[in-house]
Design a protein around this nucleic acid. Sequence first.
RNA 1: GCCGGGGUGGCGGAACUGGUAGACGCGCCGGAUUCAAAAUCCGGUUUCCGAAAGGAAGUGGGGGUUCGAUUCCCCCCUCCGGCACCA
Length: 816
Amino acid sequence: MSTAYHPEAVEKGAQDYWTASHCFEVGEDTDKEKFYCLTMFPYPSGKLHMGHVRVFTISDVIARYQRMQGKHVLQPMGWDAFGMPAENAAIKRGVPPAKWTYDNIADMRVQMDRLGYAYDWTREVTTCRPEYYRWEQWLFTKMFEKGLVYRKNSIVNWDPVDQTVLANEQVIDGRGWRSDALVERREIPQWFMKITAYADELLDELDRMPGWPDSVKTMQRNWIGRSEGVELSFDVAGENEPLTVFTTRPDTLFGVTYMAVAAEHPLAEKAAAGDPEIAAFIGECKKTDAAEATLETMEKKGMPLGIAAIHPLTGEEVPLWVANFVLMSYGTGAVMAVPGHDERDWEFAKKHDLPIVQVIAPGDGTDIDINETVFVDKGVLVNSGQYDGLDYDGAFNAIADYFEESGRGRRTVNYRLRDWGVSRQRYWGTPIPIIYCDTCDAVPVPEDQLPVVLPEDVQFTGHGSPLKDIPEFINVACPQCGKDARRETDTFDTFVESSWYFARYACPDNDKSMLDDRAAYWTPVDQYTGGIEHAILHLLYARFFQRIMRDEGLTDVSEPFTNLLTQGMVLKDGAKMSKNKGNTVDPQELIAKYGADTVRLFMMFAAPPEQALEWSDDGVQGSFRFLKRFWNAVQSHSGDGAVAELDPGSLNAAQKDLRRKTHQTIAKIGDDIGRRYTFNTAIAASMELLNAVTRFDDASDAGRAVKHEALEAVVLMLSPIVPHICHELWAVLGHKTALIDVPWPQADDAALEADLVEIVVQVNGKLRGRISVSADADNDVIAQQALADPNVQRFVADKEIRKTIVVPGRLVNIVV
RNA sequence: GCCGGGGUGGCGGAACUGGUAGACGCGCCGGAUUCAAAAUCCGGUUUCCGAAAGGAAGUGGGGGUUCGAUUCCCCCCUCCGGCACCA
């Protein structure tokens, strides 16, 4: 057999072995501890990109490591198969979205297998298949029965030229991506899921999720945005209905000098009816896309409505404005403005010459000029009548009490989180299982008529959903009264599919129920890995859906993902690699040139997983070179013949040193992979150990035994990262058992002990020397020896030593 | 605009709990091997001063705490991600 490293042959050999032995196909019948290792499933865009390779490899390394720890590991894979790109491809190339999607899945599956991932393909889940989406249709009807879904008008981006709803991504600088027409906000009826009913639980549980990164938990907390405040009503001159607003700062109530409502607010519409100028302004406000980032960054504009609200405490008239920064979908669509103590209100008041009144003074008694700078901190009330002198809490309670007693307001909790709008005016998605009847209104499709199957063989024009052109799909009998009725043609947001797929992997073949006992065995997911871009939406929706399934009696689990690893983006030229931007790198070419192991190694070595990884074409070569060195080192050692048994008690100093290095490395890599997930430093440590082995020139029996132990350790510890070459080299080292069934190595504490340690000596915090002391030397001895160092003496000389700090095993700092 | 995360040699990164800044790799320079090249192997490589020993400076910028700060605190700059219809 040739001893040169040929990756294709090595990789095919290992993969054939894994396939033939079915070693990654797992059942539930075992005494071993289970470990469910999952990566966010891909959208089948056509080809794997580097972001996929990164996330799949991270997860595969963890799965293989946990298997070596003796766990019963499930690592499944599937496809987030509904989505907009399939429709775009259909418009562009005339291929039906279904065919395009299934072809892509087939192609990507081949690419994944070439990378050697340890997947249980018997559990593959594809979300565009009726066997999958029927259960989310079913769950939606259950939610309907419980009142957890409802229909209401909501704003979409409307392209007035193409006469179609646009996704935010399809709006470029406020214009439709195809038509280039200015996008408008338009209200249409849509279905919503009541995620706000779970807001408190989703928020509170974050405190009990130690396996999630703090950054993600903080983002979710801020996204839910629970705030305690007061809802209070202002009478409006000439109106019967009061105007209700929410505020977290009732202490600033005396500082209200104007109020603002959204363009869609009934009071604004009423004023517009009698004033063309206002009507024009409101029309202008609606000529913008619906993204929050757009609203928050655009110029703040407003116009007086000529309507006065009555201040509930002073009885004074307060002018009512319509403003483009107030959102109808937030709270009540109206805000009270306190320009003295709110940044945005202050700027708006300055611009429109509205009065600014100071009603809060700094707690430390400092004088401020409210016309010069806004004061947003909490403090002591002034200019606030009977409430003067109260602090924030005192004023909050006194004013809240007053409103509650007078029946004009109440303490309440407000959330930034809004209910989840799940309707999409698109074809390639799960049909929303609703039938509209003139008599019975919206009726959920009964269980025995599920699934509502999406027709796959359609003419796709790009002008509206093709479902609207299929009478057999639309025209149905009302399930309640039997009269002629119409089927809903909107489909679900694709985030609905990705909110529960992790549970379905446990029982993808069940056609009687959504989940079963196998889900009880495998869930929750022990390790979930995916992109940081999903920190809020996907991960919050999945947490919500898990609770919906729990409350439906399908599972006892509340939190779907015990440990979360959010890997950074793969960037190129400073931006996320994406097809849209055209800055992708094809992994396929690299695999063809260097093999899967080199690609896996480079991805894991280039950066720690949570950091963004700026792609560079250089460096892959280095990983390949390392694998060749690794291969050659094992082959040449093995070629020297059989190895005697290692006797740790009879080693010389050099042999002991290498053995110490081996066991230090075992301890370090176990920690790096098992606890820290810093695969880059684990690889660096393997390289160091291999370098030490290469330098170690000792052909004695004991020497070869120590070397053998080191090489075995490297092969075992690199095997989660570069499994193919390690599979082969394990056999080369003389083993009959396949590497996949071998446990992780253990560090021998006795081998770690050293006689001498090096200690750094500083004078006034600056490095001045190094000393070697026995490992058990006490602090006085170390300090004496440090002082004796000639270079240290130069800096201490005859100066008075004020302090000596000894950090055992590390350093001595002499302060003069 | 708001929320979250980054910024360390020519480059990717390391330094885990406040204790040797630059591990490991890339690149580059020098050498060996070769008719030559590729490949491989050996040595060097933060900057400045110095023949060396050694010294000075240095982790985006400014300030602070400390015997000691890449690490903790305050202010600022800049890049990346998310902002509810991209997935």
